[in-house]
Design a protein around this nucleic acid. Structure first.
Lengths: 252, 252
DNA sequence: CGTACTATTGAGCGCTCTCAAAACCAGTGG
DNA sequence: CCACTGGTTTTGAGAGCGCTCAATAGTACG
């Protein structure tokens, strides 16, 4: 149904060491033998259904997870039962890196639609990386990317108006889809308005009103969860005065 | 003058491989020979004066930096010249990890007071880590901690009121000071109200009003930049309904 | 077709921003 | 010692953005 699904199904056909490493969008030089060793430690996952959990806050950590297809949201739940969404991950990204230090997950990860996820046990991965410098380097890059992305999100949410936050959120998603080779001008949002609002620190009603206004202003066409860019330039201009955004567009 | 300075001066006396690694607040098992190899790649820094830059956004990346004493702020500047503060680092923390993937710093790092910083060139560090599994593991932990902290900050800023943000900010600082063995009930804020406001996404006036109100309510005693906790329990209660905060208090 | 859920739209209020001014502090020079 | 200057912090008054409450509309599913 969504573009992202159609395309990501192709990714599934790849061998897992290829897709897990190429998911980093960086060149990886492993010999066939090294690739085989990597493959032996990866646990290939069955498809998860919408709403399944990959892990929950508090569970002990033993592996990181690579998303081969589908969308995943990270969130925490407070005492009153309401949830705070911390982020979204799409095909080609890793999950669970925050848990390494304390050996326990800090938030829950739940699929937003049917998803395929590989599990990469960390201890074997670490041992293998000690043998294969290219793999070790790749893990550093992976973690660095995560740190950078979170800093950029912090920058976005520091000061901005509701309008700017939503525009930034959509452009960030589009950017990440494009980098992965998925449709980025015309895509399906797997998350609810509630999830988006929680992530952006806004009320659901505000998000809904903004989607309506963006459509009125012919910035984009919204059909429930389907988004189509109409005037990406004007959306980018909303954020043009911020260094990290501008730098990221060049950098990636 | 500030408690943190007095105590951190002791840290400076340590040999650098000891303080850089113990700065992680985790046990590191290096042999004397391994420690010596580590020491050879570290460039010990001269004291930096208030306002000096450790690096600037856009500069090419070649090393990470360990703060031996003092406070540092990270920020980006937009086209109009106003700055967005992304975070603060204190003695015992590392800087620059976000730059690894793209080989360029994404934000600027500036000292808020006199500071001593070690430079650890990354390529030699990586090569050394490939030889010393304990060091490699330590770097993973270090990066994991950074990812976790940014996620927690994202959670804090997602939804909260100005009051909750400031309380969370102060408690986070206190927590980090305590973990490093510095005075955490009675400390000096090196950053201006402007910096705090920028970081929290609030107006300077709002931050100032909140400090006044916290003092009126006998939550804490504020004397310009000096902070003293009076009723830490009530401040924590402001945030008690949030899982990640509660979990962190246990975890750290 | 009914139920439950999600999304949209409207009205009114409150928190936080903006604008403005005063107070306070540190440093400089008379 | 005091006046002067530039910076930071505090305090006040008014306005606006985004939240809350409430109702309607659209969608999925049995």
């Amino acid at each position: 149904m969504s573009d992202s699904n159609v395309i990501s199904l192709e990714v599934v056909k790849h061998t897992c060491h290829h897709c897990c490493l190429s998911g980093l969008c960086l060149p990886v030089d492993l010999t066939a033998e090294e690739g085989a060793r990597f493959n032996r430690i990866v646990r290939h996952g069955r498809p998860l259904r919408r709403g399944d959990h990959i892990f929950r806050a508090g569970e002990s950590f033993s592996a990181i997870f690579f998303i081969k297809s589908g969308w995943v949201k990270n969130y925490v739940t407070n005492d009153e039962g309401s949830e705070q969404v911390l982020g979204f991950h799409i095909a080609g990204e890793f999950l669970g890196l925050e848990a390494l230090e304390q050996k326990a997950h800090r938030f829950s990860a739940q699929t937003l639609e049917t998803a395929v996820v590989c599990e990469v046990p960390f201890k074997p991965l670490e041992d293998l990386a000690a043998d294969i410098p290219a793999l070790q380097h790749q893990i550093y890059l992976l973690m660095s990317r995560e740190i950078r992305h979170e800093f950029e999100m912090l920058a976005l949410f520091g000061k901005r108006s509701a309008e700017e936050r939503l525009a930034a959120f959509l452009l960030d998603l589009s950017q990440r889809l494009r980098v992965r080779g998925l449709a980025s001008q015309n895509f399906h949002l797997s998350m609810s308005r509630h999830d988006i609002a929680s992530y952006l620190g806004l009320a659901v009603e505000t998000v809904s009103r903004l989607f309506s206004r963006f459509q009125e202003e012919s910035l984009l066409a919204v059909d429930r969860r389907h988004i189509q860019w109409l005037d990406i330039q004007r959306l980018e201009n909303m954020l043009a005065d911020t260094a990290p955004e501008a730098a990221r567009r060049q950098g990636l």
